[in-house]
Simulated scan of single mutants.
Amino acid sequence: MSVVELRPSPADRDAIASAIRTIQAETVALGALEKALNGPLGRNVARAVERMAACEGRIIVTGMGKSGHISAKISATLASTGTPAQFVHPAEASHGDLGMITAKDVVLALSWSGESKELAPILAYAKRFGVAVIAITSRAKSALGRAADVPLILPASKEACPLGLAPTSSAIQQLAIGDALAVALLERRGFTSDDFHVFHPGGRLGARLQFVRDLMHEGAEVPLAPRGTRMSDAILAMTNKGFGILGVTDENGGLCGVITDGDLRRHLHDGLLALTVESVMSGAPKTIEPGVVASAALDVMNGAKISALFVVDGKRPVGILHMHDLLRAGVV
């Protein structure tokens, strides 16, 4: 059966070319942002991180229109990485939502032009109650730029939109600087995968951040046999436990080797049943610790092309984790 190659139509080619131009324009904008961070913008980013890290309340993120959508995402990223944050819609602020802002907070306000009139009540409120304002804008002399304690002035950016109107490249810059602030704060706080799991218990991400100790089999379920065990007994133990693997322990109870189905096949013609486990086992087995996240266990299994890992505390086996456990938990 011949394969017919479908060639893109002129309309398809136009769409692809447009998509490439958009990505290129936004890539240029990000390059300009990176360059700017080596100058005054970078110094002000450091000041902003300092203010945000010292904040005793929350980071109040606000913006109107597309900047508002970016603000909401930045707020969510901050909150999920250990920095308490809340999005306040500027149009709702003067209708009661100013009460969400306290003197212990820091305001992070976004406006590309810096002239969004909806931000005025928040800026006036911040000035009245001594709330620090960090601005993300493209114009230092705008109303927002002048009102800010720490202005983050983004470089000029050509929008991908052929009309130069729809926020595209500018929105990407706003999002990128917001992510940069969140990651810098994450690193400053020493935020770990354990902390991340607290805020992300659901979905596949939450599953991947579960700990090995939460998924492993332990106690009598762990297939183990001491050195000196005859293979006739070892095979029964392997069969009864159902993991297709057996751990071999030394005189101190430490894991010194493993026997897999492959090891059994390799020794079928060596009088297998009469041998002892140390004659058949493979040394230096792959292991993992109980406090490691499940995604790391998956990486070890995939890298070694194995389907089970013994879980050890030091050298002592305390559990076993099978690929099926990761599948059931949604890690894979």
Rank of each mutant, 00 (worst) to 15 (best):
H200W: 05
Q174P: 00
P162K: 12
I134L: 13
S282I: 03
P285M: 11
P90S: 08
A25T: 10
E34R: 09
S169L: 12
A85C: 06
A36L: 08
V222D: 04
A284Y: 13
R7I: 12
A143Q: 07
G319Y: 13
A294L: 13
R316N: 12
H197G: 03
H95Q: 04
S9K: 04
A296G: 09
A54T: 04
G206H: 03
V332N: 04
P226Y: 15
L37M: 11
D261R: 12
G68F: 14
A234P: 00
W112G: 00
A132K: 06
L275T: 11
L108T: 00
L181A: 05
R21K: 07
S67D: 07
K66S: 11
H197R: 15
L321T: 07
V133K: 01
L175D: 01
S170Q: 05
G283D: 08
A29V: 01
Q86D: 05
S232Q: 14
R265M: 14
F199C: 00
L30T: 00
R204C: 06
K315I: 04
S111A: 09
V318H: 15
G31T: 12
A147V: 06
F87R: 04
G291N: 03
G57A: 02
V88Q: 01
I70F: 06
A296R: 15
H267D: 12
L298G: 08
L255Q: 03
R43M: 14
L33E: 05
G96Y: 14
F211W: 08
L163D: 07
P201F: 15
M52W: 14
S67M: 10
N44R: 13
I23H: 15
I259L: 08
S9N: 06
R266E: 03
V331C: 02
V248D: 00
V150S: 01
H269T: 12
S169Q: 05
S111W: 08
T27H: 14
A329W: 00
H217F: 15
L326M: 11
L327I: 14
